[in-house]
Nucleic acid binder design. Structure first.
Lengths: 210, 210
DNA sequence: AGGTTATTTAATAGCTTTATTAACGGCGCA
DNA sequence: TGCGCCGTTAATAAAGCTATTAAATAACCT
């Protein structure tokens, strides 16, 4: 098999359909998008969607799997051991928020499908199951070590993770509401997020202080 | 008009339809429920839904308005002036979480519809618009007063509100995921929430400490 | 009871949705 | 040149959806 014999994967109709579907599912959820809608946006015949993916559910699963992978990839990023624990925490918050800036619709997408869709939840489960212990355990280990040295207060790693994730994700969930109620445009909201990030870091640091 | 001449409102078909619709919309969102589904669950003819509410959208709006009112009511609860500021904050967190325990599907319901549905967001907006300034202003006033006396650190009221709301709501959003990934049943999750409440109060107190 | 209004149902129009099938056209290749 | 494959489309089946209408039934009133 020669590597570049085929059309560039990015340009193939199969891939265009997947990308369009991804964008539309992220904005409107599984029930909010029909294969006809997707075809219309792609500019192809509706049967073509089914030619490549057979069923709408199949197509959706592909999208969900892709997005799950991107989240896992982000989570697995590690930090240098050289930097201080405090810097590590700051780095995690920062990384997470920047990831969310690039994928602002992802949290609601996951939460909605996790509620509605049994297959979705089993995909999410499979993906995260292996990492959660490793992640929480290594975080707990770091926390214990720092606490032993007296740098921080003793605390539960799962609590800390929930604190950080709650605080980081929430502004992206309420984005449409806040923009509307406070009459913010996208630029203003972006500025707001910068300030929010500082507040979150501050809050987490307080919590860790002895 | 005699007061109790009519059937009890709770038993009327109109009300049963509304309650059933409420339950189903909360679980599955606007797009996840059809008027046929509702009729099936109620045990009546599908046309009856339309007899009372004319359109599905109308019925949904009624549900959304009701739920919005219940949130506003919760927000408007006031605390005695006798108790300390710290007790007030603890009380707010507690009240909010207990409200969420009774209405665990409400956050995702609002967030989803705020994303999908322009009419929904304008209803939410109308409802909250009047209260937000009053609420944030009065919170800011309390914060400033306490900070002036030296009881707490100076801090922005909107940040504090976002901190509390983020932390409180998040566990309810991820409920299906956590239950699944960590294999928790409802009782175990309830216990987890008790612990979570303590952690949130602790975190907010840290943040307010000078 | 008899007439009137309110509630409920059956039937159906008119769309939309998912999925399948058959056919069309281009391209590679023998 | 002609055969076969791939990507694509048109057509359509089958089911579901919202909404309306007319008819049936129940409730109410005098």
């Amino acid at each position: 098999m020669v590597e570049n014999n085929r059309k560039d994967a990015k340009d193939s109709m199969e891939e265009i359909i997947l990308q369009t579907a991804e964008d539309m599912f992220l904005s409107n959820g599984y029930n909010g998008v029909s294969t006809t809608d997707i075809a219309k946006r792609v500019g192809c015949n509706q049967a073509l969607i089914h030619y490549y993916y057979r069923t709408k559910s199949n197509l959706f699963t592909k999208v969900l799997e892709r997005k799950t992978v991107s989240v896992i990839k982000m989570i697995k990023l590690r930090f240098d051991d050289g930097i201080s624990f405090e810097e590590k925490i700051t780095g995690i918050v920062d990384l997470h928020i920047e990831f969310l800036r690039e994928n602002p619709r992802l949290p609601l997408f996951f939460l909605e499908e996790a509620r509605n869709n049994d297959e979705a939840i089993s995909i999410i489960k499979r993906a995260f199951f292996d990492y959660k212990d490793e992640l929480i355990d290594s975080l707990q280990e770091s926390l214990d070590k720092e606490a032993a040295v007296g740098n921080i207060a003793q605390m539960d790693a799962f609590d800390l993770a929930m604190d950080i994730v709650s605080l980081n994700i929430f502004p992206f969930l309420v984005d449409p509401i806040i923009k509307n109620v406070l009459k913010m445009d996208t630029a203003a909201y972006d500025t707001y997020l910068d300030g929010r990030k500082k507040e979150i870091v501050k809050l987490i640091k307080c919590r860790l202080k002895k």
